[in-house]
Amino acid sequence: MDLPFVREAVKNLFSRSSCDMYPLKPSEAAEQYRGRIEYDPTKCINCHFCERVCAGGAISVVEVPVEEGTQITRTFDLSTCTFCNTCADFCNTHAIKLTKDYHMIGLKEGDLLVSGTFVKAAKKKPAPPPAEAKPEEKAAPAIKPRDDGKPVQDPSKCVYCGICAKKCLGEALTVDRKEKLWKLDEDKCVSCGTCEEVCPKKAIIM
């Protein structure tokens, strides 16, 4: 019976233990540690993207119509969350952030729920967009963004490549390269801004 570790064991006996005494000395999590979710309701624009992308289905929304709009409470159930940070990536307004706090102990029912509520102002029915903005109307000096935040195309820069249509999650855009047609479907559009970002020619303004 050879005893390989005797020297090492005796050396350990007289050296300091390599334990970092957790409860006595608090220990910080690593830099980009994905811990407790922090939700800033003010930034949220209720685009429901986080719900769709959440693998574990941890995010649930309750919308209550209130006199000045809809009161939206969005709750993140930490006990279902896999902390994959996808919702934070998809949230354009950066309302969701996973902090470094790893201390998530649930004793009672509600401990592991992070929720925030905000009231979203009701949408005034804006005057119908000037329907006559035809594609061939070229020389509009500067395309001004529409007031309700929906995307507007600048026909001069647009090359009708169709990337914006492909990227649009809500399939609100239809682009036809041959007839040079760029059409927006108002109610499908949630004005998330993806088309603006993804357009190579920056032909879309919001």
Binding site: L13, S17, S18
Partner: peptide, 11 residues
Amino acid sequence: KIVAKMQKRVG
């Protein structure tokens, strides 16, 4: 305790 110490634990 000694066994823990030998494994560099506090024990």
